[in-house]
Design a protein around this nucleic acid. Structure first.
Length: 287
DNA sequence: AAGGCGTGGCT
DNA sequence: TAGCCAAGCCT
């Protein structure tokens, strides 16, 4: 089933740098972390700058964590930068500076969960692991299960299906192909079924493209949340050369209770380092 | 296991 | 316009 995926991929794949012939495991790992919840177009320039500046895990491991956060720029979810820095240090300390190749070792690294461990093991090392990201889940929901969207949380049935479908011959190419189809054609909001190589056998199409049934899909509040305040605080610290006085942080949000809560949260998360005299900076410390 | 966690483009 | 959405992870 889904035999048309790889032929479609060979003619429609985007030319992305972390897929190039000369890709490195470190470059693949960096790309996968950056791509967590962040679109390709925003990742690409930051990825180039990152791997040029830190070509090996050891290069990043020597830096302060704050430098990683600053280089992360506006990709969002800056905890990922902190965890990537932590992963680089763990790779140096525990793996002789080389990105480990096994799923079991990869998933032990900070910021690497099931998806990213499977993706790096597959795309950097050619191993066979089901790569179950949001694109794959959506394509399988439609093409196989006849539903517009997959369940909110990944189910055992989805894992079983992904494992059953994954070929033993060149699993990584199959995985990147189904991901690419989800990203370019079988998109969430307005799928381009006319351009889809699976359209004639797609269970969702054959069922008449029914609307989503099941519990509503969870949205993410933004305006007025602590996340918005945290984002503003981090922007000030990122754009500053050195320590920042409290009064400059106080200027980003009027509600003092919420502002303090957000700042405390950033400190607790290790994203901000408090200094004496009411000054703050991006973290210099070990973690 | 449900919710927190950034950012910006697209419809 | 205001949501919706983007290669998730962690607790």
């Amino acid at each position: 089933m889904l035999d048309a995926l790889i032929p479609w991929y060979t003619t429609h794949a985007r030319d992305l740098p972390w897929r190039a012939e000369d890709r490195t495991p470190w470059g693949v790992l960096v790309s996968e972390i950056m791509l967590q919840q962040t679109p390709v177009a925003r990742v690409e320039p930051v990825w180039h700058a990152w791997v040029r500046r830190w070509p090996e895990p050891a290069d990043l491991a020597k830096e302060e964590p704050g430098e990683a956060i600053r280089a992360w720029g506006r990709l969002g979810y800056p905890r990922r930068a902190l965890r990537l820095h932590g992963a680089a240090r763990a790779i140096v300390d525990e793996h002789d500076g080389r990105v480990p190749s096994s799923y079991e070792e990869l998933i032990e690294l900070p910021g690497i969960g099931d998806y990213t461990a499977a993706a790096v093991a597959s795309f950097a090392f050619g191993h066979r692991h089901p790569v179950l990201d949001t694109n794959v889940r959506r394509v399988l929901a439609r093409a196989v299960s006849g539903r517009r969207y997959p369940p909110n949380a990944t189910t055992a049935a989805e894992r079983r299906l992904a494992e059953e479908l994954l070929p033993y011959d060149d699993a990584p190419t199959w995985s990147v192909a189904i991901m690419e189809l989800g990203a370019l054609v079988c998109t969430a909001r307005a799928p381009r079924c006319r351009d889809c190589p699976l359209t004639e056998t797609c269970a969702w199409r054959l069922a008449g493209s029914p609307e989503h049934d099941g519990p509503p899909r969870r949205g993410q509040a933004w305006a007025g949340t602590d996340r918005q305040v945290r984002g503003r605080l981090m922007a000030v610290l990122r754009d500053a050369d050195g320590p920042v006085g409290k009064e400059r942080l106080d200027a980003v949000w009027a509600d003092g209770v919420q502002r303090e809560r957000a700042l405390d949260g950033l400190v607790a998360d290790g994203l901000v380092e408090p200094l004496a005299q009411g000054y703050y900076r991006l973290p210099s410390g070990p973690a």
